Amino acid sequence: MFEDDIEELKTIERGIFDKEWHQIYGPFTLVVGGHEFIAYPTQNIPLSAKRLYSELILTHFDLLIDVYNSLKSYDYIALKYVENSWTWLEIQVENDILVLSELNYETTILKDLFIIDKSVLKIASFGSFSNIRISKIDFLSEIRIKTIQFFEEIQGINSNILDSVCFSKVLNFYNIYK
Results as ranks from 00 to 15, higher is better:
Gly33Lys: 04
Phe37Val: 07
Ile38Ser: 08
Tyr40Pro: 05
Tyr40Ala: 04
Tyr40Arg: 08
Asn44Thr: 09
Asn44Gln: 09
Asn44His: 11
Pro46Gln: 02
Leu47Tyr: 12
Ser48His: 09
Ala49Phe: 09
Ala49Tyr: 10
Lys50Gln: 14
Arg51Phe: 09
Arg51Val: 14
Leu52Lys: 12
Tyr53Trp: 11
Ile57Trp: 03
Leu58Ser: 09
Thr59Arg: 15
Thr59Met: 13
Asp62Trp: 03
Asp62Gly: 10
Ile65Arg: 06
Val67Phe: 07
Tyr68Gly: 03
Leu71His: 03
Lys72Ser: 14
Lys72Trp: 11
Lys72His: 13
Ser73Leu: 15
Ser73Asp: 15
Tyr74Thr: 11
Asp75Asn: 15
Tyr76Asn: 06
Tyr76Trp: 04
Ala78Asn: 08
Ala78Leu: 11
Tyr81Ile: 11
Asn84Lys: 07
Thr87Cys: 13
Ile91Asn: 03
Gln92Pro: 02
Val93Trp: 01
Val93His: 00
Val93Cys: 10
Asn95Ser: 13
Asn95Ala: 12
Asn95His: 07
Ile97Asn: 05
Leu98Gln: 01
Leu100Arg: 01
Leu100Lys: 08
Glu102Trp: 07
Glu102Asn: 08
Leu103His: 09
Leu103Phe: 10
Asn104Gln: 13
Ile109Cys: 10
Ile109Ala: 14
Lys111Gly: 12
Leu113Phe: 15
Ile115Arg: 07
Ile115Trp: 03
Ile116Ala: 06
Asp117Lys: 13
Asp117Gly: 04
Ser119Ile: 13
Leu121Ser: 09
Leu121His: 10
Lys122Gln: 14
Ile123Lys: 14
Ala124Pro: 10
Ala124Met: 11
Ser125Lys: 15
Ser125Ile: 15
Phe126Cys: 04
Gly127Asn: 07
Phe129Pro: 06
Phe129Thr: 06
Asn131Lys: 13
Ile132Met: 08
Arg133Ser: 08
Ile134Cys: 00
Lys136Val: 01
Ile137Arg: 12
Leu140Met: 11
Ser141Leu: 08
Ser141Trp: 03
Ser141Tyr: 04
Glu142Ile: 09
Glu142Cys: 10
Thr147Pro: 00
Thr147Asp: 00
Thr147Leu: 04
Ile148Met: 00
Ile148Thr: 03
Phe150Leu: 04
Phe151Glu: 02
Phe151Trp: 08
Glu152Phe: 02
